[in-house]
Nucleic acid binder design. Structure first.
Lengths: 124, 124
DNA sequence: GGCTTTGTCAACCATTCGGTTGAGGAAGGA
DNA sequence: TCCTTCCTCAACCGAATGGTTGACAAAGCC
């Protein structure tokens, strides 16, 4: 299993079956059998998927007689959105800055040389 | 490789090395060698990682003499945020609705039975 | 007590994944 | 022309993944 939480969440949601389950659980809690019903796979396979989701912190399971209701822990999704937004914003800022540079340039000057190593004094 | 685009993006970012590369590329374009430098792994391994990112649509590569500058395509990240936000919102609405139900309840009535199959007329 | 339902655990299997080494193509510089 | 640089492709390897079957624990029902 992946060491860091972020990798666990990303790879948990990299499987379409598991994303389906999250979608289903967003509507309400469900038992393993209920979650397994729409799929051709065995209940054991679904149980494994749930373990992956649980290890990622996306899901919690309580105890209720023989049943094990599964509950979605939607907060963990924020981990991902935070990561994503951070780098999307950085990239967007870069575009904006490049745009400014291009606009303020006289004419034939070479624009920001691509492929500069980070050590050379990159865009700050 | 995964069939659907969403799975490709999620699993591309499930690897910490690839997330590092995305973070690096958010600052600016880079060549394969530049991307490989901070890591202990071989250039070939980095090349493989880039192929994964490229297949996910997260990255594009142009040609410039022998060099292949890598460019981040940040738009694809929206695919994920859209998916995530959708189900986080659904889950939040459910909590809000359950909250309303509980608040408007006389007293000893049984609250929304957990583990109801979706066919039974779920919360819409 | 015995049977049924619900779910997990263990073992196995095929495939994928992340890494390696080695070979080689494509382009510029001597 | 030959050499060097940059990068990818192919083959291989060990570990992880997603699936199966089979056994079994735990709780309720007859």
């Amino acid at each position: 299993m992946a060491a860091d939480p972020l990798s666990r969440v990303f790879s948990a949601l990299a499987d379409p079956t598991r994303r389906d389950m999250v979608a289903r659980l967003a509507i309400g809690d469900a038992t393993v059998n209920e979650l397994a019903r729409p799929y051709v796979v065995t209940v054991q396979a679904v149980s494994k998927h749930l373990k992956v989701l649980e290890d990622a912190g996306l899901v919690s399971r309580s105890r209720e007689a023989q049943r094990r209701p599964v509950h979605l822990e939607a907060d963990v999704l924020d981990l991902m959105t935070t990561w994503i937004e951070r780098y999307r914003r950085t990239a967007e800022e870069r575009y904006r800055r490049l745009d400014d540079v291009l606009r303020s340039m006289p004419d034939g000057v070479e624009p920001t040389p691509p492929s500069e190593p980070p050590s050379t004094g990159a865009p700050t």
